[in-house]
């Protein structure tokens, strides 16, 4: 026998599961924001890359670029994750027996 996804109990379970999923993304967003903040404390002195008088090979600049890049990525990830959580809540709200079979515009929800 096929599982009846449209049964009221199944719909309720699905909506709860989607909301739980949304909560995971919000939590992930907070964690990524904390990582972003942590990268701000990882700065280094430009003199820390050589104990001898050697030609500058751009070590410090490359490091600062990497740090800034990864910090920005984590910040973008945090924003994205909260956005995904919001979309999932919309999905949960819309997921009813009545319109389960209705075609929704996925692009409108998730974007292109």
């Amino acid at each position: 026998m096929e599982f009846d996804y449209g049964a009221p109990a199944a719909i309720r379970a699905a909506r709860d599961a989607i909301r739980a999923e949304a909560a995971r993304w919000d939590d992930a967003g907070e964690r990524m924001r904390a990582v972003r903040t942590a990268t701000e404390g990882l700065g280094l002195s430009p003199f820390g890359f050589a104990v001898a008088d050697v030609a500058d090979t751009g070590q410090w600049r490359v490091y600062e670029e990497m740090r800034a890049h990864l910090g920005a990525l984590c910040g973008d990830a945090a924003a994205e994750f909260h956005g995904i959580a919001a979309v999932l809540r919309v999905c949960a709200d819309r997921y009813t027996a009545a319109d389960r079979d209705a075609v929704t515009d996925l692009t409108a929800v998730w974007g292109d």
Partner: peptide
């Protein structure tokens, strides 16, 4: 923590889930 998704997500069916 995100992957794999929650087990109860099995109750969710349809294209929106695939998109997710």
């Amino acid at each position: 923590a995100l992957d794999p998704p929650g087990r109860n997500l099995a109750y969710w069916a349809g294209p929106a889930k695939e998109a997710y």
